[in-house]
Every structure is written in structure tokens, then in C-alpha cells.
């Protein structure tokens, strides 16, 4: 565990807390993509199946359970409690393509052919593109609430910090080698490129995030 990794994890936790705050404070999930949240739940469930077979640390297990349960709770809020506020007409990204993309790569790039390894690889590729429905929704609506933009920023920051952690570990831990994780992680961070730019620009002006249409 190094500082970059810890800050990355914390940023991931913060992003989820921000999303929950947004939904609970405004009692609405307007501007939030249900499809992205659904994909994250699939990512966490397929990746963290190893909870039942390997124990790494208490920290690791607690975080895994926290990610699965909070994302399931967010989906519950969006699907049942605040369903009437869900902006279905703007959440139109076709996630079948993302699932097909991740499934195809999961069969080509696993470290070894076992059920857990293939699912783990699938989760990495799916996570790398899972933000796309949310970014697409933001693009079509043009702007979003502050909390929503902070949420997306914290989520992007998490992967960016992980990338720094990989460079750090690669240079300090002999034999540290995770090519699929790295490539999927860099793809994921790159998808935030445009968003980061407009987010920082909007912070500087002290205004809401507004995207050019």
C-alpha cells in the first residue's frame, strides 16, 4: 500500500459518498445515468467474487463489500425510491456494445483461463468504459448539478491516482506486472480527458459545469 493507491481508493469512496449525498439532498437522481450505475454493480460483483476464495486484508475485504453494497443501494434509490426523477430520455447510451466489448476482451486477454480470471478480466475492461453512459448523458444535457460534476471528477481522479500508483509500484516492487490492469486503467482515465478540462475550467470561473453543445 502506498499513498497514491490509498488516495485513489479514498477518492473512489468519496465519489460514491458524493453521489449518495446528491441523491439524498435533492431527493432526485436527475442527471445520473442508471446504466453507468448498473455497469458498476456488474463490475464490482464480477471482480470481487474472490472475496470468497482469497483473503488479502481486512481493509481489502471491507472496501469490496462497501463498493458492492453502496452501489446496490444507489441502484435501489434510482430504481425504486426516486424512480420518478430518473431522466430516462437522456440515458440512451447502448450498453450492449460496452458489455460485448468487455466480454470479447475478457476471452482474449485473461492471465489464465479459469472462471474467476475471465470474470476478473471482464470486470477490468467493463470498468474502463462504464462511465461512458454517464458522460454521454452529460454531453446531451449540457450541464449538471455541482455534486454530480464533483462525483464524476472524483471517479476520474481515482483511476488517475491508481495509474500513478502503478508507476510507483513498477519502479519499487520487483516482479510487479499487471499489463491488462494498466491498459484498461489508462483507457478509463483517458475517457475523462475532456471532462477534466471542462470541470477545471468551470471551477476556475466558480460556475457550474457547462459543456459546449
Amino acid at each position: 500500500m502506498n499513498l497514491f493507491r490509498l488516495c485513489g481508493d479514498l477518492s473512489h469512496v468519496v465519489s460514491i459518498v458524493l453521489l449518495l449525498l446528491k441523491i439524498r439532498a435533492t431527493r432526485s437522481c436527475v442527471g445520473i445515468s442508471l446504466k453507468t450505475q448498473f455497469l458498476y454493480l456488474v463490475v464490482f460483483v464480477t471482480r470481487y467474487l474472490d472475496l470468497f476464495v482469497t483473503f488479502i486484508s481486512l481493509y481489502n475485504s471491507v472496501m469490496k463489500v462497501a463498493f458492492i453494497s453502496t452501489t446496490a443501494y444507489i441502484l435501489y434509490l434510482m430504481f425504486f425510491k426516486f424512480k420518478h426523477t430518473y431522466d430516462k430520455d437522456h440515458d440512451t447510451f447502448r450498453i450492449q456494445f460496452l458489455i460485448a466489448f468487455a466480454a470479447a476482451l475478457a476471452f482474449v486477454t485473461p492471465h489464465r483461463y479459469s472462471l474467476l480470471e475471465v470474470l476478473w478480466t471482464f470486470s477490468l475492461w467493463l470498468e474502463s468504459v462504464a462511465i461512458l453512459p454517464q458522460l454521454y448523458m452529460l454531453q446531451t444535457t449540457g450541464e449538471c448539478e455541482n455534486l454530480t460534476s464533483h462525483y464524476i471528477f472524483a471517479l476520474g481522479l481515482y483511476r488517475a491516482l491508481y495509474a500513478v500508483n502503478w508507476v510507483y509500484r513498477y519502479s519499487t516492487e520487483p516482479g510487479y506486472w499487471q499489463p491488462v490492469t494498466w491498459i484498461a486503467g489508462i483507457l478509463q482515465t483517458a475517457l475523462y480527458g475532456d471532462f477534466f478540462y471542462y470541470y477545471v475550467a468551470s471551477r476556475r470561473r466558480g460556475k457550474r459545469l457547462k459543456l459546449p453543445t
Binding site: T54, S57, N60, F67, H111, Y162, Y176, T181
Partner: peptide, 10 residues
């Protein structure tokens, strides 16, 4: 089998 590090990241 190629070497790959234990999956200790989240």
C-alpha cells in the same frame, strides 16, 4: 505460467 502479481488492488 507467466508471473503476475497478486490481485491486492481494488
Amino acid at each position: 505460467d507467466s508471473i503476475e502479481t497478486e490481485k491486492d488492488e481494488l
